[in-house]
């Protein structure tokens, strides 16, 4: 199984300080395949936006980084390494140490991610622990909260934005090396959204923390992250510097995604939707998962799994990536 999965080219020179390495990860939920050979690399201190529609596998990828996959998920193949440690093979004690010292997580629903029975201050104290990494008030102040008021509050008494700041304070309290944020602003309003993201990125920059930000919003991610990885059908189909991915997509799906968002359309210009709908995999995709919806597909796209191709500054999983340079129109 593992041998059949294509490996991403290792950009040895640039990537030897990789903090996170995901190699050919395959994850099934029952008969449904969530990840179909996903590769991702994140260097220390880097911010990476992982973009995909629902069902693309991005949440599964995020969960796999901390081995937080739901019980019914099965890892069929592949590896996840954080700072060289094989996350999927660690013993429970080692896994806890890794999560405690190196990883932080922020999830979509902030109020649900806090313990409803405990005041915020107490939850923070539990995380700060004996080592005493700064006081509770300081941690809350760092995320822009009024410590006196918030520390004695229960999670349900907080607004979504405040709860997400608390969750960020909890995740960043131990200055982790890698923060995985799964749609952290999806449930927040636009005014709050940008402020919360400011907090995340400022704190991470200060602590030298790498960020993996999972989102469905390509432009939003590209505005803030160094690099962008685009997921489709359980694989990372394109990755590269944010400006390059958004400005000159190398994969037809990235171009389609950028072009179909109504926000990207100029006045009076008709949207060009991607025909069809995202795939539902039940096993390894025989070829490129985007082939049925791709306007550039050839015969081999349906039968041959694409290997990564270097196009400009990006890596793309597309047989035709080299021919399509300059062909993929950008709307944004």
């Amino acid at each position: 199984m593992k041998a059949r999965m294509d490996k991403a080219p290792m950009d040895k020179a640039r990537m030897d300080k990789a903090l996170l390495e995901v190699d050919g990860l395959v994850v099934d939920y029952g008969r449904a395949r969530a990840l179909d050979g996903a590769d991702l690399r994140v260097a220390a201190g880097q911010t990476v936006g992982v973009v995909g529609e629902s069902g693309s596998g991005k949440s599964t990828l995020g969960a796999a980084i901390g081995r937080l996959l739901p019980r019914q998920a099965r890892v069929e193949a592949g590896e996840v390494r954080v700072a060289g440690e094989p996350v999927l093979d660690l013993r429970p004690a080692e896994l806890r140490r890794l999560r405690r010292n190196r990883l932080g997580f922020v999830f979509q629903d902030p109020i649900a991610s806090l313990d409803p029975t405990m005041r915020v201050g107490r939850q923070l104290r539990l995380v700060l622990g004996r080592e005493g990494r700064g006081d509770v008030a300081g941690q809350l102040a760092r995320v822009g909260l009024d410590a006196a008021r918030v520390a004695s509050a229960y999670p349900h008494q907080l607004s979504g934005g405040m709860a997400q700041r608390v969750a960020i304070a909890l995740a960043m309290a131990a200055s982790p090396e890698l923060l995985v944020a799964d749609e952290p602003t999806a449930s927040l309003d636009a005014q709050v959204r940008e402020k919360v993201l400011d907090v995340v990125f400022t704190l991470a920059a200060g602590a030298g923390t790498s960020i993996v930000w999972l989102s469905h919003d390509l432009p939003a991610v590209a505005r803030r992250c160094d690099r962008v990885a685009v997921m489709y059908g359980g694989r990372v189909v394109e990755s590269g510097p944010a400006a390059a991915v958004l400005g000159a997509p190398a994969h037809p799906y990235t171009a389609a995604l950028a072009g179909s968002a109504p926000a990207a359309a100029a006045p009076g210009v008709r949207l060009r939707p991607v025909p069809g709908r995202p795939p539902v995999l039940t096993g390894p995709s025989p070829g490129c998962a985007f082939e049925p919806r791709c306007p550039f597909a050839e015969e081999r796209c349906a039968v041959e799994r694409p290997a990564p191709v270097r196009v400009g500054e990006q890596d793309a999983l597309c047989h035709r990536a080299a021919d399509l340079v300059g062909e993929l129109e950008v709307v944004a």
Partner: peptide, 29 residues
């Protein structure tokens, strides 16, 4: 999904051009 949204938005515009109904389109987007 973003890639499907555009299909539906175009469909709505086409149908409105054909049938001429008035619409109240409510969204956060």
């Amino acid at each position: 999904d973003v890639s499907v949204q555009a299909q539906i938005l175009n469909l709505l515009k086409d149908l409105q051009a054909e049938f001429g109904f008035s619409a109240l389109f409510i969204s956060h987007d």
